[in-house]
């Protein structure tokens, strides 16, 4: 009975895993496994990586990619103080109004505003990007299988030339990790694309790692709280279950 049970449980888990591999088929999908500070039971976000990653987003990605689910006030969670956040927000303009005359007007953004998007709508975004739509990045890490590894692999997976026998579509770029191997986005990162405020060398790998860390935080800002709480909850439950087991044995002892 126990043997069959273990076999059944193993098979069930394989089913869930097996459905995943089916998705990776179809070309591309060369995902490199990478060590992340936030993986594992005790994972946390490296604050330095978060701030560098935000810098990469701001200086490189935000020209095409929106992050509509983030507010400027969220930046206090990655180490910026309230005044810095006010200054960062004030660099952008948001529409407000109508005013007393019924006109809409532009004003500097406040911490309580959402990140300002680079394009007013989808059509404007496509028009500026050869018909391709740069996806919003707020949840990109959770919207892709093996999110952090995938994003990192795409950012570091470009080749200048397509390999022998592969014909690139017009305006497309060859990428090892992107499904189908052809991606409309030109390589966004190159050596020293950004000058890091903390002086870290801005290699492509470094920037990719930092921005992926930032994007993971953006998709799940409560990750650290969640894992910390999880450790406490499970420890509590283990102790509690042990006590309950002892109680159970005690209560049942008069029957055996």
């Amino acid at each position: 009975m126990r043997r069959q049970l273990i076999a059944a449980a193993a098979a069930a888990i394989l089913v869930l895993g097996g459905t995943a591999t089916a998705r990776a088929a179809g070309g591309g999908g060369e995902i490199k496994a990478h060590d992340w500070s936030f993986s594992g039971v005790f994972g946390t976000f490296d604050r330095g990586a978060l701030q560098r990653g935000y810098q990469v987003y701001k200086e490189v990605c935000s020209s095409c990619h929106s992050m509509n689910l983030l507010y400027y006030r969220n930046l206090t969670e990655i180490g910026f103080d309230a005044d810095s956040v006010k200054d960062i927000a004030a660099e952008y303009e948001v529409a407000d109004g109508p005013d007393g005359e019924g006109e809409m007007f532009m004003r500097p953004a406040k911490p309580s505003d959402r990140f300002v998007a680079p394009f007013a709508n989808e059509q404007a975004a496509r028009a500026s990007n050869n018909g391709a739509l740069p996806p919003d990045l707020s949840l990109i890490v959770e919207a892709r299988f093996d999110g952090p590894d995938y994003i990192y692999s795409v950012l570091t997976g470009y080749e200048d030339e397509a390999p022998e026998g592969v014909e690139l579509g017009e305006g497309m770029n060859y990428n090892h990790a992107f499904p189908g191997n052809q991606i409309a986005m030109a390589p966004p990162l190159f050596e020293d694309a950004v000058e890091y405020a903390d002086g870290t060398a801005a290699t492509v790998e470094q920037m990719a790692e930092d921005v992926t860390t930032f994007l993971t935080w953006a998709a799940e800002p409560m990750l650290e709280t969640r894992k910390r709480m999880g450790v406490k909850v499970i420890l509590f439950l283990i102790v509690f279950s042990a006590l309950l087991y002892a109680v159970k044995r005690k209560v049942w002892s008069d029957l055996h």
Binding site: L237, F240, S241, L244, Y245, V247, K248, V251, W252
Partner: peptide, 9 residues
């Protein structure tokens, strides 16, 4: 009591 223990697990 047995159900509570099972619940804990």
């Amino acid at each position: 009591v047995k159900d509570l223990f099972g619940l804990g697990l």
